[in-house]
């Protein structure tokens, strides 16, 4: 029988994979994809608890998370295009203009 525990474990695994991707990769596209993975993990947790408590609130908040993910992807990819036009690179280590 599938319990909420299974879903929380799946969410934790996806979130951790996303964190590892953000911390280790240098390609900005893959970092943005890892952020999407983390948002999906959060959605799984929200909907698992929505099912567990038989309340629809978790699903409503999952819709808000998807909205924020869409906005984040649009702005993030706009930044990527602007960055590529200026510096011709997707490598985040070369974007160090504001680094102290």
């Amino acid at each position: 029988m599938v319990t909420t525990f299974h879903y929380l474990l799946l969410g934790a695994a996806l979130f951790t994979i996303g964190v590892i991707g953000v911390l280790t990769r240098r390609n900005i596209m893959i970092i943005l994809m890892s952020i999407e993975l983390m948002m999906n993990a959060v959605n799984i947790n929200l909907i698992a608890f929505s099912d567990r408590l038989q309340q629809v609130t978790g699903q409503v908040f999952a819709i808000f998370v998807i909205t924020v993910a869409a906005a984040e992807a649009a702005v993030g990819l706009g930044i990527v295009i602007a960055m590529f036009k200026n510096k011709e690179t997707m490598n985040i280590n070369e974007i160090d203009l504001m680094k102290w």
Partner: peptide, 19 residues
């Protein structure tokens, strides 16, 4: 598919369409 097993059919559709 995980959303479908959690009886969140609407969100499964939203996931496929939006994501």
């Amino acid at each position: 598919g995980i959303f479908l097993t959690l009886h969140a059919e609407f969100l499964a559709g939203v996931q496929v369409i939006v994501y």
